[in-house]
Design a protein around this nucleic acid. Structure first.
Length: 172
DNA sequence: GACAGATGAAGGA
DNA sequence: TCCTTCATCTGTC
């Protein structure tokens, strides 16, 4: 069975993000292609007018918007909407749950995250799970660094990772 | 089952 | 230090 996603834009000072909601919660969050530009509507979701959106999703969208703006401002997120990780592996979910516990300004290395989830040698797999993260920013994969305080990698671009970390007061 | 990857550690120059 | 090599673990095709 195919789950239809509802797409809703989130306008921020960094551009227009696109949130995708399933019936279970926030399923994906897309970065703007470039600052100030709208991500084109993709086939996996559908644009709907506000009257068609269930109240529950509108509530989640308000929470997502607030959370996103908090992260972009380097502040602690007060409340997150439910996250829909249907179809993801247990390992990936463990990695992402661990990252959710990292507050602003706190970082962990890939090796430390691996140890926290009980797989101390699975640092490469943690990197893979970070890359597969459908909800960047809210699941703060940018707070996971390589050993020795090096920046490591970032699927949406190292510049964006550096920028996000700088907003939280982390310098290299 | 083979391959790739957002790593980490060790050894040599 | 910096670079190279190898071990390790998981996800994807």
């Amino acid at each position: 069975m195919k789950t239809e996603l509802v797409e809703l834009p989130i306008t921020t000072g960094d551009g227009i993000f696109l949130a995708h909601y399933s019936g279970k919660g926030l399923a994906e969050l897309d970065f703007p292609i470039e600052d100030g530009l709208v991500m084109p509507v993709r086939k996996k979701g559908r644009a709907v007018n506000s009257k068609q959106i269930p109240l529950q999703i509108l509530r989640w969208h308000r929470m997502t918007t607030e959370a996103l703006k908090s992260v972009l401002a380097g502040r602690k997120v007060k409340e997150l909407p439910p996250l829909d990780w249907t179809g993801k592996t247990e390992f990936q979910k463990s990695v992402w749950r661990t990252m959710l516990k990292l507050g602003p300004g706190k970082t962990r290395s890939y090796g430390e995250v691996a140890a926290l989830i009980g797989h101390p040698r699975a640092m490469r797999a943690v990197g893979s799970a970070c890359g597969a993260n459908p909800i960047p920013l809210l699941v703060p994969c940018h707070r996971v660094l390589a050993a020795g305080g090096k920046i490591g990698g970032y699927g949406s671009g190292l510049d964006r990772k550096r920028d996000l970390l700088a907003r939280e007061g982390i310098r290299f």
